[in-house]
Amino acid sequence: MSDQDALLTESKSSSDASRIGEVKEWLAKTFEAAGKPVPEFEYTPRSIAHLYNLLTVSKAKDEAARLVARDFRLKAAEYRSQAARIREILENAGLAQEGLPSNVVASAQVLANVANLLNIRDTELSSFLVAMGDISLRKTGVEEKRAKVQKESKILLDYTRKAISRLTYLKRTLAQLEDEVAACEGQMENWKTNLQVMAAKERQYLQQSANYKAVLNRVGYTPEISHGVLVEMAEHRKELDKQTKPILDTLRSYQDLPPDKALAALAIEDKKRQYAAAEKYLEDVLHSALESGE
């Protein structure tokens, strides 16, 4: 440790010791004035710092009180001196209090009391008028503030009533909701069960849809084979049946004819051509139906 640090440590220790001495002396005087012993406590740096601050503030306030008291004593002495001078003047003028009638003394006392009440230095009429005007202004201000406070109180009372009404409504609603909790919980359990059933059905339907798609893929189903295309093909098939029925009837009628090989061959060839033309017409219709479906 350097010499400077040693000096600082020694100075701090002496300062702490001085503070402790001042605090002990102040505590002893304070509690002695109150007629009570100083309580036992541990002198720690924190407690010493706090008590030293209180000591400083107390000394400052005591000094201020002494100055104010001295000023009051000086003013009181001045007032006594002035009162003695005024009394002497009144006695010389024959207006001493002992020589005045009792009603005059009482009136003067009342006048002095009113002057003290109005906080004026003299009993001049102008001073009374100014004081009364000041009181009237204060009264008007107080009345205005009172009216404002009453208005605000009325508004707050209205708000309070509304708040109480809303609170009552909320409490009633809360009680109603609490009563409905059991029923709602039962309904929620029912919905939960139904949801689980629907989820199981959904999985089942998805599996069935996948199976149906696999079956359609195996049989060669394509999106071009729609219901409309099938209906149109059925209608064309009916039309083709109508066209081929007379030919079949004609062929059946040939079975009753006497056998003639040459005529029969010609008839058969003619019917084959008609049948081939009908098949070609059916293929053309199917192709056109598929192209229109796409």
Rank of each mutant, 00 (worst) to 15 (best):
A69F: 01
S107R: 15
A83T: 09
R87N: 04
N103W: 13
Q176G: 10
A60G: 06
S107M: 11
V68H: 05
M188P: 02
E185L: 05
S165R: 03
P101R: 03
K171Y: 03
R70Q: 09
E124I: 07
W191I: 12
Q150G: 04
T123V: 14
S126K: 05
E185D: 09
S165D: 13
W191T: 06
T193D: 13
A131S: 06
A84E: 01
M132K: 08
N113K: 14
C184N: 09
S165T: 05
K145I: 07
K162L: 05
E180Y: 04
T193R: 13
V149P: 01
A175E: 15
N92Y: 07
T193E: 07
E178A: 06
N194M: 09
K154S: 14
E63T: 09
I89K: 06
N119G: 12
A69D: 02
D122P: 00
E178F: 04
N113D: 10
D71C: 03
L157M: 11
G141V: 11
V104R: 10
T193H: 09
M132Q: 11
A65M: 08
R138Q: 15
R138L: 08
K145T: 12
E144K: 07
L195S: 11
I155R: 13
I135L: 14
M188Q: 12
A112H: 14
K148P: 01
T160C: 08
R166D: 07
V104Q: 13
R161W: 11
A96G: 15
R166H: 08
I155Y: 02
I86G: 01
A96L: 06
L90R: 01
T168E: 05
L137M: 09
A64D: 12
L111W: 02
G99A: 08
K61I: 14
S136D: 12
A112I: 11
V68M: 10
Q187W: 07
K192E: 09
P101N: 04
L129K: 12
A175M: 05
T193A: 13
Y79R: 11
L95R: 02
D122N: 12
R66F: 07
G94H: 02
A147R: 15
L111R: 11
A112N: 13
A147D: 12
A112L: 14
R146Y: 14
L111S: 08
S165Y: 03
N190T: 15
I135A: 10
A93N: 03
R146D: 14
V149G: 00
S165L: 04
R80F: 01
V114I: 10
R138G: 03
Y159F: 14
G133P: 00
A64Y: 04
E178M: 06
R66A: 10
E88H: 11
